[in-house]
Design a protein around this nucleic acid. Structure first.
Lengths: 218, 218
DNA sequence: ATATTGCATATTGTATCCAATATTAAATCA
DNA sequence: TGATTTAATATTGGATACAATATGCAATAT
């Protein structure tokens, strides 16, 4: 009988498990802006004491996903139109640079994976998948950049605006347009045209921002 | 008798006080890369229980200033040359855009404050001040940008490379050159030339990165 | 009717304690 | 003498308990 090597110090702590669950609930919109996160209630839900719950809430606060006030508790953070818009601008500054760096280093299989993602996007019927697919599309392309710090920062920025992006994909022709633009980006990547991929990425992000601004109803 | 309004919910928790103290020790180099941060020892130093210490360490980890491993404890994070270089690149992508946005909105008093900072930089004899002054110079200029999210992200990036920047200011002609470049940036700002200010900012950051690379001895 | 005060309950911050795991030293074995 | 096993100690993760503060409601005062 063969035993799998197993590093206990690599296992996830209770706080990490709770953090992941709450972060996912926030970015998918299951936990909405303004909702209170009560420590005792969460401790009961996850069947733990308040200590790992507090640690999970602390991480969420550091990620900007919730706001806490001493002795008053935590609420799910929302973004104003200005704040959301600024994060799109941030992405529009940074993601073109990341993809510009990534394009020359993209392998055939990476490009295939990106195209497969577009195909999945086109056929996905469950809106819950759209946000994940959109996000995976971008990170798939960027991972060839060799810029892990940039990707980490962008991942946090995406966490902040994900609830809005996901809602926006449901509106108007968000999905169709997003996928057309995704395919255009992949086409530029396949042509090994870093500048064109960068331009299209930037335009795609600004288009998404403009669409969100038009439909804003906070 | 007049009483000052005082919002108890705005006071800093023990965890926040400990976090601030440890963060400062790390970015100024008082706590060095690789040093262990033991919960019990820190609890004794700050005269608290381990709980606020754990919470402070968690925040430091979220800021990338320390690394923790389950059951094994925390160590002060260092950066490889590649990682440090990437963060400079990140700044070089982002800070020009921030200052470009800030220049048209800079008030006379803000420009005066920036120049006063350069004067203080030129006369500061205590190397412990140089890092603070350098950092304050950049944030002074950027605050007119109206991009608080960008500034928050840049502040965290600066935290990561501060120990290296501060060390680098001590070497060679780091100080003199940094101040010359700071003055050149201010000059472009006073001329209301956003593009020139952006170009100079980018070059300044890349120069600092190149100087750091040359003197790297990790 | 409104303002103020007192009290109960809810919630959070932190202290203390226990269990789990890692590390180091001592004892034992080949 | 070196390898292995066992025991002791150090350290961390999480549970429980206590203190501090916020909130809401009832009682009282004006």
């Amino acid at each position: 009988m063969k035993l799998q090597a197993y590093d206990i110090s690599k296992t996830a702590s209770a706080a990490t498990i709770i953090f992941d669950a709450l972060r996912h609930a926030i970015i998918t919109g299951d936990l909405k802006q303004g909702e209170h996160l009560r420590q005792d209630e969460l401790a009961r839900i996850f069947n733990v004491s308040r200590i790992p719950v507090r640690e999970a809430l602390l991480k969420l606060e550091q990620h900007g996903l919730i706001r806490t006030q001493r002795y008053k508790g935590a609420v799910v953070a929302g973004l104003s139109l200005e704040e959301a818009s600024e994060i799109f601008e941030f992405r529009a500054f940074l993601e073109p640079e990341v993809i510009r760096r990534a394009v020359p280093r993209m392998s055939r299989s990476l490009l295939d994976a990106a195209e497969a993602n577009c195909a999945a996007f086109a056929t996905a019927s469950d809106p819950m998948d759209w946000g994940d697919l959109n996000r995976r599309f971008h990170t798939t392309l960027y991972q060839a950049s060799g810029l892990p710090y940039h990707m980490e920062v962008l991942s946090k920025a995406m966490d902040r605006i994900d609830p809005y992006l996901r809602a926006q994909l449901l509106l108007s022709d968000g999905m169709e347009r997003a996928n057309r633009e995704h395919l255009a980006i992949v086409e530029a990547c396949k042509a090994n045209d870093a500048n064109r991929a960068a331009d299209r990425t930037r335009q795609h992000i600004l288009d998404a921002r403009n669409s969100l601004v038009q439909h804003w109803k906070d």
